[in-house]
Nucleic acid binder design. Structure first.
Lengths: 242, 242
DNA sequence: GAGCGATGATGAATGATGTTTATTAGTGGC
DNA sequence: GCCACTAATAAACATCATTCATCATCGCTC
């Protein structure tokens, strides 16, 4: 028939190459348009394949999304783990975790959005690979806090998992503001702020907005004055009794 | 024809009643199935109207969702504001804000999910009514923190907006865990934990897990000893000079 | 209370998209 | 050079959100 007169062009790249082409295209389209606005057609065209071909490698649109985010997250996790090993000190470790996370969000804000918006809310997230990856990621902070509690550097009545929730929650809220184009998003500054707030805490006495540092300073001063006073006194007494 | 033999039944309830029926049905279906799984047909059937009727009152499916969440959020805001006025003391105020928010999440977890998942991520959220309502809601915490900084009860180097992000971020993370059926969700306990962590902070000295309280106690002790020592001394001197 | 226009409810038709499948191009063994 | 098998293709299909031509109902007029 007329049909067979038009020869069908067939793309015969090796499967790994086709898969990576599709995933790269999917990553681009998903991040540019978001999940529901992204069309399978868009992805197929950009990958240089035909719609049907995508379904040879991915069960459906959602699986494709999950695979894309997974790949991103894995890279992020491996990359951070290497550097993290070298950090010493609780403050520095907390700050490192927060800072690197903020950096990767700034590098790929749209992927974070996909993670928060499309992946986490689904019912099957809990059993998924991404859930475990994310747990591994956030658990580093819990380990740091636990160790710091054990050696007395952080209060023993703090819940490590709550610290995790506060820190990553704060990061997330800043991220949403960033995604909404509200003001700037400075990973250095935000990391400092979050780390300080977790590390030093907020409370003061009623009088004058003191910090832990100033409390320690006052205590030191008082101790020194005590020593300075008690010393001469004992000398005086010694003289008197002498 | 055969068609006209079947008389069309027409629903002639007053518009307000139809709107509230539709919104109630929409609320049920959205919370049960989530936004994308919820079908307009489902909502129409449950509301006892026909698909087309929904579009007389709502521009599209999304607007219906927004209106549903808006209604919920408004009620929540009004209700809380009344009680809040009576609370005295920073700790109690923070704890109240956190606690009531947790209670309303436990009452309607699925609506919180819709808010976080479907509403907040959209580009038009920033200019929306819900955005303003949410700002009003979270701004109470900022006001409390600002006032507390002004009167010296909280450190002056804390960022009120960061406190907001940490508190609501922590609430949100606990909510996700709750929605995933991970363990229990006890508003009283969580509210205490969050409030304490914000209010008292985490840091200690290197030696022995001291808290702000113990630091104050030590400082008080040192001050008293100082006074106890310097007082007799001045008396002695006074006597001497006399 | 019959006729008539306006209003708005109806549900079948439309269009946009994810997914499936019958068809056909390419590949390698014999 | 034929055949069987694999895999790519693109058209067909299914699933909704959304639209719209049709018609029931109401209020008004005479």
């Amino acid at each position: 028939m007329a049909r067979s007169a038009v020869k069908r062009q067939v793309n015969r790249l090796p499967p790994e190459r086709r898969i990576s082409d599709i995933m790269k295209a999917a990553r681009d389209v998903f991040t540019e348009k978001g999940y529901s606005e992204a069309l399978i057609t868009d992805i197929a065209v950009r990958a240089g394949v035909v719609e049907g071909s995508i379904y040879r490698f991915f069960a459906n649109k959602r699986e494709l999304l999950v695979k894309v985010v997974e790949l991103w997250f894995e890279e992020l996790l491996i990359q951070d783990a290497e550097q993290f090993a070298g950090i010493r000190g609780v403050w520095n470790q907390i700050r490192f975790i927060v800072h690197t996370h903020l950096l990767s969000i700034r590098r790929d804000p749209a992927l974070s959005r996909l993670m928060f918006q499309e992946i986490r809310p689904t019912p099957d997230y809990r059993g998924s690979r991404l859930f475990k990856l994310n747990q591994a990621y956030t658990h580093r902070l819990i380990d740091v806090v636990k160790a710091a509690i054990a050696n007395g550097e952080l209060r023993s009545d703090t819940s490590p998992s709550l610290v995790r929730d506060m820190v990553f929650g704060a990061i997330e809220h800043r991220t949403w503001a960033f995604l909404r184009n509200e003001g700037d998003f400075d990973p250095d500054q935000i990391a400092d702020q979050i780390t300080n707030m977790v590390y030093r805490g907020l409370a003061t006495d009623r009088k004058g907005a003191v910090t832990f540092d100033t409390l320690f300073t006052r205590l030191d001063a008082a101790t020194q004055r005590l020593e300075a006073i008690t010393e001469p006194q004992t000398k005086k007494r010694a003289r008197k009794t002498a």
